[in-house]
């Protein structure tokens, strides 16, 4: 391949990558600048304006941001911990003691992710209502965990499959029981993968809107409900909606930014070997 050809290829790849990045980032960028505009300016396409914190002041005055944020944190952490707690033993048994139906179970678990959530809204709503779980943090933790468990099991399974079986056998000969195998060997060895699983669960449950909007109203409402409350029937207030959105996504964006290396490494863990 000639140098010119390889340069051209590099140029095209770079251009495509930048275009995609801009395409993905543009809405976030627009939301960020809109949040510093007034409601009147929000309808103008100009990017040159006098920044103001007016929208933020109004959002703070109208809603209890900290209560929503607190719920988001509690729910996300709860979901992440509970999902890992359930997924790790499940993935351990599937990876190291597979039965004739293990692959089918994994596929079936994943297939549940393909079902539209709205299809089960009514039965879930009634179940939650009858069990007193509506508008409770624990109610949301349970439903989010159920939604995210297939991803958590699948990812943990993939990471555990990378661990050589002989290492666990060596530990068994050394006298380790199942729990000691998991705690002393499996968890430390698949830590990068499990950390990115945790991170992904955290992001997914932070961003989950459908169930939080339908199963909570005030008491347990997380930040997604907080954003939705600014899209009211009286009309859209873009500046305030943007300010609320920025406040809602900022924590997870910062976390995602800081952990992006870990996340990419974890998600490509099995693929590059």
């Amino acid at each position: 391949m000639s140098v010119a050809h390889s340069r051209l290829r590099y140029g095209i790849t770079t251009a495509v990558a930048w275009s995609l990045a801009i395409l993905v980032f543009f809405p976030i960028f627009w939301m960020m600048i809109t949040s510093f505009k007034t409601e009147e300016q929000a309808y103008q396409l100009s990017v040159i304006f006098q920044p103001t914190l007016q929208s933020f002041r109004e959002v703070f005055a109208r809603s209890d941001y900290l209560s929503f944020a607190g719920n988001s944190i509690a729910i996300s952490l709860g979901v992440t911990l509970l999902s890992l707690l359930l997924a790790i033993p499940a993935a351990y048994s599937m990876a190291f003691f597979p039965g004739p139906r293990t692959q089918k179970i994994l596929l079936w678990m994943m297939s549940t992710k393909m079902m539209p959530s709205v299809g089960v809204l009514l039965p879930v709503y009634l179940l939650w209502k009858n069990s007193g779980l509506l508008d409770t943090v624990s109610g949301l933790i349970i439903i989010y965990t159920l939604i995210n468990l297939p991803i958590a099991v699948w990812m943990a399974f993939t990471y555990f499959c990378e661990v050589p079986k002989e290492i666990l056998e060596a530990a068994r000969i050394d006298g380790a029981n199942t729990w000691q195998e998991i705690f002393h060997l499996l968890l430390p060895m698949s830590l990068p993968g499990l950390a990115s699983t945790g991170l992904l669960l955290l992001i997914l449950s932070w961003n989950e809107a459908f169930w939080s909007i339908n199963l909570s109203s005030s008491h347990a409402a997380p930040l997604t409900v907080f954003i939705a409350s600014y899209s009211s029937p009286e009309g859209l207030f873009w500046a305030k909606l943007s300010a609320a959105s920025l406040l809602a996504v900022a924590p997870i964006m910062v976390l995602g930014w800081l952990a992006q290396k870990q996340l990419v490494r974890g998600l490509t863990f099995g693929a590059v070997k």
């Binding site: 002989e166 290492i167 060596a170 068994r172 050394d174 060895m189």
Partner: peptide, 30 residues
Amino acid sequence: VPPAKRGIAMVFQSYALYPHMSLYDNMAFG
């Protein structure tokens, strides 16, 4: 009888060392 109580020790083809532990800890684990 479980492996650990048979009075045996095994060396594997792939060595099966615990990768996150120092050699000292590898040998001390059992």
